[in-house]
Computed example of a mutant assay.
Amino acid sequence: MASVKIENLVEKYFQAETSIAEENELRNYFSSQNVVAHLEQYKPLFGYLSLAAAPQFKREFLPQSKKNTVMWVSIAASVVVLLGIGTYAYYNFDGATKGPDLGTYDDPEKAFRATRKALSLLSANVNVGIESVMYVQEYKITKEKIFIETQKQTGSGS
């Protein structure tokens, strides 16, 4: 009689018409040792469902000494990285604080010749600029003459 009831519940289960209480009854029946031979094939299904229904988590905690070791290793790694960056910055940016070497002369004659050459180059470039200004001045004077003559011709003087 119990096997007929279980068979009906299995049929209902596969048609998705069982209640939670009926599913619990199926789970309990298939987890027991007295399962009828022709229903043995469903035992793994309901056995799995009973195991899945009650998941058990096993938390693993690192022992305190491993936590401390991990912490100290990470601190040491940070210190090594900071020292590496500091060393790199010290050796590569040390020259940037010094001014550029503009050249010095031990011999006064060489210094005099270099200064004379630099001043003559500067003078030549200044003279080119002055010539350009002279052309602008000449243009301005000519424009004023033309403006005065046109005023005289039109007879309008202010």
Rank of each mutant, 00 (worst) to 15 (best):
S65H: 10
L51W: 04
W72A: 09
Y48I: 09
Q56D: 03
E60G: 03
K58F: 07
S65W: 13
L62W: 01
S65V: 10
F57E: 09
K67I: 09
F57N: 01
W72L: 15
F46C: 12
S65R: 06
A52M: 06
L45W: 01
L49N: 00
F46Y: 11
T69S: 13
G47M: 08
N68D: 13
K43C: 01
F57M: 14
K43S: 15
T69I: 06
T69H: 05
A54I: 03
Q64D: 15
W72V: 10
T69A: 15
W72E: 13
E60L: 15
G47R: 08
W72I: 14
E60V: 11
A52L: 07
P44F: 07
A52W: 01
A52K: 10
A52N: 08
P55E: 07
P63Q: 13
W72N: 14
L49V: 08
R59H: 11
K67H: 04
L62F: 12
T69N: 01
K66L: 15
M71G: 01
S65K: 04
E60Q: 11
V70L: 14
G47S: 11
Y42D: 05
Y48R: 11
K58E: 09
K43Q: 12
G47P: 02
F57P: 02
N68H: 12
Y48F: 11
T69D: 10
L49G: 01
Y42W: 03
P63R: 12
L45A: 00
G47F: 03
Q64L: 06
Q56P: 00
K66V: 13
F61H: 06
Y48N: 14
V70W: 03
F57G: 05
A54E: 13
A52F: 00
P44W: 10
S50A: 12
G47K: 09
P63G: 07
R59V: 09
F57R: 08
P63W: 13
L62M: 10
K67P: 02
P44H: 02
L49F: 10
L49H: 04
P55L: 03
E60A: 02
P44K: 00
Y42K: 00
L51D: 15
M71F: 05
S65A: 11
Q64T: 15
F61Y: 11
L62C: 08
R59P: 03
W72F: 08
V70I: 08
G47V: 05
